[in-house]
Structure formats: structure tokens, C-alpha cells
């Protein structure tokens, strides 16, 4: 209750120029026209919900899934300002990419200039790239769009997607469908598709082919990887700094003297492999 009073007070003060009044409606406000987010707005379950009156019609500006008859009525000049106000009420810097895409779609539907929205600086400062991204995202398929809606994808990854052709987007969608990746894996995968776009063709993702085509490793690096994988069974050898140093960290577990003895044998057996690694590293 205290929270909602505080929010009410703040909202009345913040939007004082828009003549806010608390009003009970006969019937309910239009909740669909400006619906761009599914998010709940803290405090508004008790509060009157903000709404805007434009050309005699009342549009709900927040908590779009809640029907209400009592609203804080604001008077922006037009529907574009009403949408901008709605974004501002949530806080422009809390808006996710998927939500911005909804705002962009609303702007297209309602003939609103997207640039009047309270865009955060990362979009505002690179407006051309931002507009290109949203235009591209409008064409993305449902699998990709749904996935992006669930995850908070970094803008740099989204910008890479925006530059991709339909085949690459199809390829990434197929990867999503086949692997359900983590956000980190998705980001890395997108980067590899961007970097090797000229070598990838079609929209069917095959993990083995992808690994081969996008393998950045030099022959000498692959050779070392191969030897390390051969060594790593009962004992593991790890270089923790991408081979900028030659330090190998060895680890193994023993539960009895017999196991210890067998580790000793293994360590002896891998001596030639270790020698081969250090030869490749130039540290014989």
C-alpha cells in the first residue's frame, strides 16, 4: 500500500504537465491498441492504472492484462506520445529487445514515428543500425523471434543477426531447434556464423560440418588439442592461459595405493606425448 501510494505520488508529479486526474470510467479503457509488453508494473495492482485520452478515446498505458475502471488519466497530444509515455512509465532502460520490437511494430501499425519513442542511448546513438535491426527482426521467423523473446540477447549479437541473409537466419533457427543452446552458446554460434558466412551455405545445421567449417584453429593448435585429448583420461592436463605460457596443470584422484600406482604408470606412459606438446610449444 505504501509502495503504491509512493508510485501514485511520483507519477502525478512526473506527469504533472499532462494534467493527470484520477477518473472512474464508464466501461473500460482500450487495452489492446498500445499493448507492447506483458510485464506487470509494481504497485499498479492497487493503484489506478495510467491511461491516456487521445481524441476522445481512452487507452490503457500499463498492466495491459488487467481490466480497470479507475485510471490516472493523462492527456498527451497524440497516440504516438501516448505510446512513448507508456514506455516511459515502465522505464525506457528496462525495456528488452523483444519489447522494443513490439513498440516498433505498434509504431508501424499506428503510423507513429518510432524515433519519438524514449529510445535508450545505445539505440539513439546508432539510430541507423537500430532501425535496420528492427526492420530485419520483423522478418525473422517465429522460432527465432520466440527464442529472442525469452532471452535477453546482447545488442551486439542482435546487430549481427540483422546483417544476416535468410539462409544464415534459417541456419541459426535450425541450430536453435536442434540444440536448445544456452545464451552464451547462442552468442558464440551467431558470431561463428557471422565470421564464416561466406563458407556456410544453406539453412540446415549439421554440428560436424559446422565444427569443421568454422574451426579457427591452426594446424599446430589442433595437434596440441589432439595430444591433450589423448592424455586426458585417468589424469588431466590443462593449460589455463590459452597457451600463452607453457604451464600444464596436472590433476588426478586416487582412493587407494593401487590407484596411485596406476596413475604413476599412466604419467610415465604419457611422457612422449608431453614431450611432443613441449616440442610444438617450442619449450623442449
Amino acid at each position: 500500500m505504501i509502495l503504491s501510494c509512493l508510485i501514485l505520488k511520483r507519477m502525478l508529479k512526473r506527469f504533472s504537465a499532462l494534467n493527470p486526474i484520477v477518473k472512474t470510467l464508464y466501461g473500460s479503457a482500450d487495452r489492446e491498441t498500445l499493448r507492447w509488453t506483458k510485464r506487470y508494473l509494481a504497485g499498479t495492482d492497487i493503484l489506478p492504472v495510467p491511461a491516456a485520452e487521445v481524441d476522445g478515446k481512452i487507452y490503457q498505458l500499463a498492466v495491459f492484462n488487467m481490466e480497470t475502471e479507475t485510471v490516472i488519466l493523462l492527456a498527451p497530444g497524440d497516440i504516438g506520445q501516448a505510446l512513448a509515455l507508456s514506455v516511459e512509465i515502465y522505464g525506457a532502460d528496462t525495456v528488452t529487445f523483444a519489447e522494443w520490437l513490439n513498440v516498433y511494430k505498434k509504431c508501424a501499425e499506428l503510423n507513429i514515428d518510432f524515433t519519438v519513442m524514449p529510445l535508450p542511448s545505445n539505440i539513439r546513438n546508432n539510430l541507423d543500425a537500430g532501425l535496420k535491426l528492427f526492420a530485419a527482426a520483423m522478418r525473422w521467423n517465429k522460432t527465432l523471434a520466440d527464442w529472442l523473446e525469452q532471452k535477453n540477447i546482447p545488442w551486439k549479437t542482435l546487430n549481427l543477426l540483422a546483417e544476416m541473409n535468410d539462409d544464415n537466419i534459417g541456419y541459426i533457427t535450425d541450430y536453435l531447434a536442434k540444440t536448445s543452446p544456452s545464451l552464451q552458446s547462442f552468442r558464440q554460434f551467431t558470431e561463428s556464423v557471422a565470421d564464416f558466412a561466406d563458407k556456410l551455405s544453406g539453412s540446415v545445421y549439421d554440428p560436424a560440418v559446422h565444427a569443421e567449417v568454422t574451426n579457427r584453429r591452426s594446424c599446430i593448435h589442433r595437434e596440441i588439442d589432439l595430444i591433450i585429448s589423448k592424455i586426458n583420461s585417468a589424469v588431466t592436463a590443462v593449460n589455463k592461459d590459452n597457451w600463452e605460457t607453457s604451464a600444464l596443470h596436472w590433476s588426478f584422484v586416487t582412493k587407494n595405493a593401487g590407484q596411485y600406482n596406476s596413475i604413476l604408470k599412466t604419467l610415465e606412459e604419457v611422457f612422449e606425448d608431453v614431450r611432443a606438446i613441449y616440442a610444438l610449444l617450442g619449450d623442449e
Binding site: 546483417e163 579457427r216 610449444l281 617450442g282
Partner: peptide
């Protein structure tokens, strides 16, 4: 990566060095 013309450098065997910069795999560059 943001550039229109994608650089071939991005396909290289780069890994994070001890100073936080990407460099070619040490034996390769050595």
C-alpha cells in the same frame, strides 16, 4: 564484426592473452 566488410582476421586462431587482448595462438605467431 560490426563492419559491413567482414574482416578475414576474424577467422583466425585468436585466443585471449594474459593482458586481456586477443592474439594469435602463441606457437603460430612465434
Amino acid at each position: 564484426r560490426e563492419r559491413k566488410e567482414r574482416s578475414a582476421i576474424l577467422k583466425g586462431d585468436l585466443s585471449l592473452g594474459l593482458d586481456g587482448k586477443f592474439r594469435y595462438f602463441k606457437p603460430l605467431r612465434r
